[in-house]
Nucleic acid binder design. Structure first.
Length: 206
DNA sequence: CGCTTTTGACCGGCGC
DNA sequence: GCGCCGGTCAAAAGCG
């Protein structure tokens, strides 16, 4: 049947080192083949996305048969001003709200975190990506009957977050949005990113 | 007993 | 200024 829909990867052209590059290299483990396959399905069956360079928005446009007006924001605008956690590489754990508005650090330009959304067609909400996550929040989402869950990587010093949300439009679809990059190796050796893709393919063959 | 989840409160940003 | 909204905190409950 349908399977994995799409992955969105985009950068926050914030600082010197390109988080996008790092991200993609992090993601690149063997996924090229799978991805192109997925992309193919994605183009045919779902939708496409655009990326606004101005505010680094990521949008999922429409659905198969709906008009372009029917937009779904997959990854919301990366807020220019909220939280503080690292752009990825080991910023360190400035966890609390105490450091809330430090995206504007001393006249430096705002830091935008790399963020990418990953859309899968799956019965289960949580895909095992090999990292350990602790849930720290859940919120109802407007225009969506399913809540969005917020997770943080449990590894100390690693401030990667992710959000998981199911589309009410199509409850078979789960959108996982990652923020930041892991500062440590993957935890399980067997269940890595590649494993996810395997899982997806399993689902797709059902 | 230590870690994770749950859940209401809280906070800052944004639009009106 | 006010209210809404998305995101986070943190205490309490749950679980192995």
């Amino acid at each position: 049947m349908d399977n994995l829909a799409a992955m969105f990867l985009y950068s926050s052209s914030s600082t010197s080192t390109s988080p996008a590059a790092a991200l993609s290299s992090q993601l690149s483990l063997n996924m090229t083949n799978h991805y192109s396959h997925a992309d193919h399905n994605y183009n045919n069956r779902y939708s496409s996305y655009t990326q606004s360079d101005d505010d680094h928005e990521l949008r999922l446009i429409g659905e198969n048969k709906k008009g372009p007006s029917d937009k779904v924001v997959v990854a919301d605008r990366i807020s220019p001003s909220t939280n503080s956690f690292s752009t990825g590489d080991g910023d360190d754990l400035n966890t609390s709200m105490a450091s809330t508005k430090l995206n504007v650090r001393k006249g430096e330009k705002k830091i935008r975190k790399p963020k990418f959304a990953f859309q899968t067609r799956s019965q289960v909400d949580i895909l095992d990506d090999g990292y350990r996550w602790r849930k720290y929040g859940q919120k109802a989402v407007k225009n969506n009957k399913f809540p969005r869950s917020y997770y943080r990587c449990t590894q100390q010093g690693c401030n990667v977050k992710k959000q998981v949300q199911r589309l009410s439009k199509d409850e078979g679809v789960v959108v996982t949005t990652y923020e930041g990059m892991h500062t440590h190796p993957i935890e399980k050796s067997t269940d890595n990113f590649e494993h996810i893709l395997t899982q997806m393919q399993i689902y797709s063959s059902c």
